[in-house]
Design a binder for these strands. Sequence first.
DNA 1: TATTTTTTTGTAAGCGGTTACATTTTTGTC
DNA 2: GACAAAAATGTAACCGCTTACAAAAAAATA
Lengths: 341, 341
Amino acid sequence: MNIYDISKLAGVSTATVSRVINGFDNVKPATREKVLSIIASQGYTPNAFARGLGLNSMKTIGIMCADSSDMYLAKAVYYIEGALRENGYHCILTCTGYERKSQRESMEMLMSQHVDCIILAGSIFIDKDDSNNKYIYKAADSVPIMLLNANLDHKNIYCISCDDSAAMEKATEFLLDNKRNNILYLYNSNSYSATKKLSGYRKALEKRGLKCNEDYIRYFNGTSKDLEKVCGFVTELADKGLKFNGVVASEDFLAVGALKYAVRKGIKVPKDLEIIGYNNSVLTVCTEPELSSVDNQLETLCTNLVRICIGALSGESMPQKTVFNGELIHRSTSASSRKTK
Amino acid sequence: MNIYDISKLAGVSTATVSRVINGFDNVKPATREKVLSIIASQGYTPNAFARGLGLNSMKTIGIMCADSSDMYLAKAVYYIEGALRENGYHCILTCTGYERKSQRESMEMLMSQHVDCIILAGSIFIDKDDSNNKYIYKAADSVPIMLLNANLDHKNIYCISCDDSAAMEKATEFLLDNKRNNILYLYNSNSYSATKKLSGYRKALEKRGLKCNEDYIRYFNGTSKDLEKVCGFVTELADKGLKFNGVVASEDFLAVGALKYAVRKGIKVPKDLEIIGYNNSVLTVCTEPELSSVDNQLETLCTNLVRICIGALSGESMPQKTVFNGELIHRSTSASSRKTK
DNA sequence: TATTTTTTTGTAAGCGGTTACATTTTTGTC
DNA sequence: GACAAAAATGTAACCGCTTACAAAAAAATA
């Protein structure tokens, strides 16, 4: 059953059927009705491939993310997919891992599928050495590229992010306000947004004229799968004599690890140690006491990313850079008596 | 740049170019080399739409899942996508939510995209009233359907699942072995796999001649987003006078809620209360003490699902039903002195 | 009513591949 | 070297839709 069959049954040309299907207004109402009824009675659906070939688009958008089982990225994918579907777009999802080579391959795969746009969910795709970002610029020559939580300057690249630096600065300041002058900073990535967060931490210290002790900035080489390891890592730091009365982390799981350490050692939280995570994930409410965390407005970021994406695809002029503010969510690992808006 | 341009540059016909691209062996090596070098020098990639139109396939598979931000489903999607990608397939992901209507719409969307196969990740798509499953049977007339953790009888539907009933029975028995005769059963879904789990709980009791007290079987109306509510729910049950010395849950977050209740009330775990969750998710290691849980072998399920899927697509005869066994993972909320294999 | 303008419809050429079938070239055999 | 068989290549129809352009029908104007 194809458009030709329908046209014969309706006694019109394929062009007219096509017009009806695509909702053009230059079709006589009576003709439209007839064609629609035939289509309905035959249960006909246009062949998407032929359509794609003719229009050079299948209304499909590619989403690249390092690991869709990561809690944060999973949410991003969920929000993005939902918003795109509402706009009549389909999503091809590809999990690239953390290696540049496989990321490039994923990008090529998406390009070969002729997606209308590519969304890079996460800053892991951007290299500090800009010459390694050519693969992105090349793709941007063909289709608009959307960056979530990252930044790149190019006329066809749109960046949507949270001001992670400011948000982390706020979190750090909150602890400093309570005379927590030995704040451990835990992170596990050197991506664009991770770097921003760290700079926020430094800025908060600098602002008060405190010099930043590099011993307190600690890189953890692992992921949320290694939560037990994080606890061990923090315990080791403490055992080595590092004294700290505050912890801020670039991801919630790192903060949970610190909290585990505290609970096991019987350290009172938040009285003797305050802890603030980042992402405001479900982990924050699993622990006892529950974890304070920075919410970086993922849903807002994603819905706006899609809005801008759709706009760009329909030829509208859209802002290249869109930045939102994070918010510090207080639970039980930061001293609630000082809660601020 | 299309196949015709390449054929001219290489001085051969489009058929030959097509043969080279598709790796047919009836091409003279010298010709193949020449064509390949032209293709490489021109940076040519075949148009996927034209290809799809000709072959009636774009090597794309549809994944339906209720909510890809759900930790369990997110992992399923991750494993499935990865395995499919290794086999040269692309994935269209669609999150359907929990309403039958939107699930049907997602299914239609995937069918209209002419995917080669549809994977239903989760048992939420199957209705107990089989007449409501027509939308699945209808799709199965066109493409193979893969069910993860669910079951449906049809010649073109393949089911891959964990024996959730047996796994839950094992978990329950483990507690009964330690004279935990008042075991609270928490669940939050009536899907196929959730029902199986519950039947496993019942079976364990029956096996010992214990009659199942329905007061202990409790439905929680919410999701992992409402973790704090779960804790409140369990606290309420206890406040109402329900006495229990064991908890098994159909999902980890329910068990975490129970554990929160215990920690807050100062109940000793596992001495006075043993708790076992289900899915062996990352939540199990966030809590203190860490949560024992049933691992239902999601990765194994997914890789086998994809293996069977690929086999079926290439015309091989594949098993309609594939069942794996779950495994009880002991951490700190079940009495470790009795640890069994 | 004749003429012009506008609306509606039809024709047919793409879009860029695949592949059945026909043809040419190569290889093998006697 | 003649002939048959096998291998390599080419021709052209086809997949099912879109759309520029042409043509016909309807509406507006004179």
